Amino acid sequence: MSRAHVRESDGDAPEDLPELPLSRHPNYVTPRGLALLQARLGALEADIARLAPEAVDHRQRRAALDRERRWLVARIASAQPVGGPRPADRVAFGARVTVIDEQGATTRYRIVGEDEAEPEAGLISWTSPLARALIGLAVGDVATWRRPAGDCDIEVQAIAFPDD
């Protein structure tokens, strides 16, 4: 069998890594969200600086870090901070919203940017089905949250806008 068309690795070049995908949505961020992205970039750059450039075993790691750095630089460059006056009586980006569901369970969420979202901590992306159901509502309004586990009606109990 001919090996003329088989690419063999010389062990020196890192594998080509595909770029990390960028969201198609506007990159709205809270001040906290932007600070988190900037801190993450700073930590990443420190990690890159610690890698020995001549170490062959670090090349793949360096390629992955460089890729993540490009993604973070793009996210920071496209960031659109949202702050200032917001409608205190309506759910909007940055709002902390307290809701009650059909079973009477009360939960608090904050609507944040995609990169800041952490659902386990109550931080939900403005692009999520829950946030989309809540945005524009006032206290006392009921929305249907369409979710894989089945639709759920939720009522807005309180709206606040943190100062961060």
Rank of each mutant, 00 (worst) to 15 (best):
E118R: 10
P129D: 07
I48R: 11
R75Q: 08
P85D: 08
R132K: 12
D47Y: 14
G140L: 04
G122E: 04
E102D: 07
A121G: 02
Q38M: 15
D10F: 13
V97Y: 09
N27T: 05
N27M: 01
D141S: 01
A88L: 11
T107V: 13
E54L: 08
P87V: 05
D89Q: 00
A121P: 12
R70Y: 00
A92K: 05
E120A: 07
D115E: 04
R75W: 06
A77W: 02
P31S: 07
V73R: 15
A149L: 10
D151E: 01
V91F: 07
A74F: 10
P18K: 09
G140N: 04
A138H: 07
V29A: 11
P87R: 14
A39P: 00
Q38E: 14
R146Q: 14
P81M: 03
R90A: 05
P85S: 09
L34V: 02
P21H: 03
P148N: 04
D163V: 08
A149P: 06
D10W: 10
R147Y: 08
T98H: 09
I159L: 06
I111A: 05
R90W: 06
L44N: 09
M1D: 14
A131H: 05
F93A: 03
G136K: 11
W71Y: 13
A121N: 15
E116D: 00
L41A: 05
F93G: 03
E15L: 07
D141W: 03
A138I: 02
Q60Y: 01
R61T: 15
W126M: 07
L36P: 01
E120H: 07
A105R: 00
R108M: 06
R108K: 08
P21L: 14
R32T: 09
G83K: 06
N27Y: 02
A4F: 13
V139E: 13
T98W: 10
Q80W: 07
G104D: 00
R50M: 15
Q103L: 15
A64V: 09
V99S: 01
D66S: 13
R75N: 02
E19S: 07
E8V: 09
R110Q: 12
D66L: 11
L34S: 00
I124E: 01
T98R: 08
E114D: 11
T106Q: 09
L36T: 03
A133N: 05
P31A: 01
A43I: 07
A39M: 13
L22N: 14
V29D: 07
L44V: 04
V112G: 02
R110S: 03
A121M: 03
L123W: 05
A43M: 10
L130D: 03
V56R: 14
